[in-house]
């Protein structure tokens, strides 16, 4: 019963393990070089699936701020939020950054304490940052602020990392296929055991 519950609860992770092992099996035991490369791609996407699953939260939406959430938050606008609230002009964002820079010096320690106290999701770096932002508003009451809850949004850090991983994956696939074409030109086959056979009997 417990086993079935664990299986259903973390189904993403079980699927990730299965797909990863399928890819590893293909890389190790397939003879065809293109099959090996397909296996490598399957392996990479399995890892990306794992990381995206980490960033997922129930009841959470995509990590983008909507207009009404940014409204009235001119003074709290920080450098990393200025791209999300695109309707604010540049000068305003610059002003806010300068303001923040002067502000941060004195109450940084207090903020760190604050974020740890209501650590709901404080292990996520981004969430910790948003919380930091929120606790800032407690200090500058009357300035208004972003009324956002970190639990409302998924963790965008893993998404950004995996974006890079996808691009690296297609690059390695391209290099592998180029080497496969070169090998075909040299040996006239893309089967690994035939290439090894030709090398053993002496191609010279």
């Amino acid at each position: 019963m417990v086993a079935i519950e664990a299986l259903a609860d973390k189904f993403n992770y079980w699927v990730y393990i299965v797909i990863m092992m399928i890819g590893l099996y293909a890389m190790v035991s397939k003879n065809n070089l293109i099959k090996k490369l397909i296996g490598m791609s399957v392996f990479q996407t399995a890892i990306i699936l794992f990381y995206v699953s980490i960033g997922y939260k129930d009841e959470a939406t995509i990590p983008i701020l909507y207009h009404d959430q940014v409204h009235g938050a001119h003074h709290a606008e920080e450098g990393d939020h200025s791209d999300e609230g695109a309707h604010h002009d540049e000068t305003h964002a610059m002003e806010a950054i300068a303001k923040e820079a002067t502000h941060h010096g004195n109450d940084h320690a207090v903020d760190a304490d604050h974020a740890e106290v209501d650590e709901h999701e404080a292990d996520h770096v981004i969430d910790a940052h948003v919380m930091h932002n929120e606790s800032d508003h407690a200090f500058e009451a009357g300035h208004g602020g972003l009324d956002i809850d970190p639990n409302q949004f998924e963790n965008p850090l893993v998404h950004v990392l995996m974006l890079t991983a996808i691009v690296v994956g297609v690059a390695t696939l391209g290099v592998g296929l180029a080497i496969t074409q070169k090998l075909y030109g040299e040996f006239g086959t893309i089967e690994e055991h035939e290439i090894i056979e030709q090398l053993r009997t002496g191609n010279d």
Partner: peptide
């Protein structure tokens, strides 16, 4: 799962460019 940016990239790069690479290699070899 809410990772829209990753999904976009995978649709363009994984399903598009990778398939083109694979097919062109297969047509050039066996």
């Amino acid at each position: 799962m809410g990772a829209v940016d990753v999904a976009f990239t995978e649709a363009a790069v994984g399903a598009g460019v990778s398939a083109v690479f694979l097919i062109s290699t297969i047509l050039r070899t066996s």
